[in-house]
Design a protein around this nucleic acid. Structure first.
Lengths: 334, 334
DNA sequence: TTGAAAGCGATACCAC
DNA sequence: GTGGTATCGCTTTCAA
């Protein structure tokens, strides 16, 4: 076939650049990648010039084919619209960009994960970060997968997958203890979206026991703002004696505040609330949400590092209580 | 080089499959792609079997190299953490997934756009959807770009880029008219994050004029919840006569509600508010936010279609007033 | 310091 | 209905 020259409708290739610069295509490669061989300054200049003239841009697919890397990493979340995952996605994208990696975003519920993972692997992503829990069978197949996987912000069972997460257990305890020790609450309910006795629930449960209190007020709903709102009624009906609640996510806490308000309950006067996440949303609820902050940025950055040759494997990050007003504290409006 | 057989540390290739199935590599391709040539049922079964045994997954990079398509589309937003863009991203991802396309998410402020676009183009994305406004010079270069571009949810100036957006102008008017005609407000302020006289502002401005009112209360802040909150003080100080405000985004409206609350002002009694977006956040503010809803799903789906061979070019989508309580309406808590 | 050339994995045309 | 094979754009070894 006749070799076409660069023109409309076709990207310039490395050969075009080579021809224009009057060098071999290998040299173009050397200057683009700054190696593996040195190039004379004058030659380099000519090549750079040609690149600019042609608007040449290396074809990542071709490069990927040969190097086996794509500079792409996959991020799997259940739902980006959820503030928590949006914050996570933002942090991961930033960390990735800093390393010249691009983010392929996939949303999936656990049952769609296998397909999504296959698809990402097909796209030669250099690694996958998942904030959606993995179904056990996927875990088994993981051994066969060539793609590095790391779990982010998920409970950490005994498996072989590298995993980075906040200290769900300790954080939940912080929340409960604040409610009990600072504000004197003795009936502290749990609002969760998780499985019975997931890590946050255990934190709540054990903290209460340690305090000599009874962990018997538990409401389960979906991990969403709507879920939190809808839980308001069951909460006040089933546990009228509860004067405080630890919500396992800020999304739910925000919804709960709205739901409680609609029911005529005052927060924190009638019911105090502490959330979990430290997501943006808690800053703007009325009243502002006291919550357990997690180090998104740090975790995300480490997750990317991990794929980029790191060796963190498993790590649990300390949380920090962010005191605002929904717990009953008075803080100056800054 | 000696041909290795499939084994640990290396993905199975089409050749491996061909060998195992005892067919040529072309046939493998035919069954994988369902064409362009027919394959005998028995042969197809053998191939499928081999694929399964080997865990074969076509290498998208290689395919992309030859077809020129990557099944990847780029989405550029200023900030995924922002609820509005998170909702957009979710919708776009869903529409893309439905067509077998994967989403590459990039965050960028206008000045970083050129690099990001270059990078995405290098990754051979089949198209780029941007919800970050394009700097004019990028627009010029666009002519040289091989990558289809479509603007999503952005103001539509006179340029040659396909663009899909809600009816910012009409929507703003809806909001203002509701405040004036239904609730009798005569001093309706504008809270915006946009340039002076952007489309939403023009809608507010013109609606007021049409109503015989004066468009002289304008507060500008950032397009964020924090921006909305911080605007509360300037708003009440500079325009104490304002009894209502049209906020150009729900993010800002949510922040404004919080800020106003901190200042001791009641919404909607002291100040009524109508937002713009119909984002999730407005559902859970206290009081719930009346807002101008935009058809995220439809726009996003059309944007993906557009890249996928569509010919929509420019389209403006009708908005719909979502009446809740921040405007002063009483609606049953459902 | 530069160039020729061998692939990377997959597609699709052209014979058989 | 199947099987060679040229080719996509690029990296990198080996010679020059």
């Amino acid at each position: 076939m006749v070799r076409r020259t660069a023109g409309v409708g076709r990207d310039a290739t490395r050969d075009d650049v080579a021809r224009l610069a009057g060098v071999s295509s290998a040299v173009v490669s050397y200057v683009v990648n700054d190696g593996p061989r040195p190039v004379a300054a004058a030659t380099r200049a000519r090549v750079l010039d040609a690149i600019d003239k042609l608007g040449y841009r290396p074809n990542t697919a071709a490069r990927s084919l040969i190097t086996g890397k794509s500079d792409l990493i996959g991020l799997i979340v259940p739902d980006v619209e959820n503030q928590y995952f949006a914050t996570l996605a933002k942090a991961v994208e930033k960390s990735a960009a800093k390393r010249g990696l691009r983010l392929v975003l996939g949303q999936a519920q656990p049952d769609q994960l296998p397909d999504l993972v296959e698809s990402l692997a097909g796209h030669q992503v250099d690694g996958i970060i998942t904030a959606t829990p993995l179904p056990p069978d996927l875990l088994v197949r993981t051994g066969r997968l060539t793609v590095p996987l790391v779990k982010l912000s998920l409970d950490q069972p005994m498996d072989a997958v590298p995993s980075l997460s906040p200290d769900f257990y300790g954080g939940a305890q912080q929340a409960v203890r604040h409610l009990a020790e600072v504000h004197g609450h003795r009936r502290i309910a749990l609002l969760t979206g998780g499985e019975p006795m997931d890590v946050r629930e255990r934190g709540w449960h054990d903290a209460l026991l340690l305090l000599g209190l009874v962990p018997d007020c538990r409401v389960q709903t979906s991990w969403t703002t709507a879920g939190g709102r809808d839980a308001a009624l069951p909460l006040v009906e089933r546990f009228p004696e509860a004067t405080a609640v630890f919500a396992a996510s800020d999304q739910q806490a925000a919804g709960l505040i709205a739901g409680l308000h609609a029911l005529g309950r005052r927060v924190p006067d009638d019911i105090a609330i502490v959330g979990f996440d430290g997501a943006l949303v808690g800053e703007f609820t009325v009243p502002p949400l006291t919550t357990v902050g997690v180090p998104f940025q740090q975790m995300s950055s480490d997750a990317v590092d991990q794929l980029d040759g790191g060796t963190i494997d498993k790590r649990i990050y300390p949380t920090e209580l962010i005191v605002r007003e929904s717990c009953g504290c008075r803080v100056g409006t800054e």
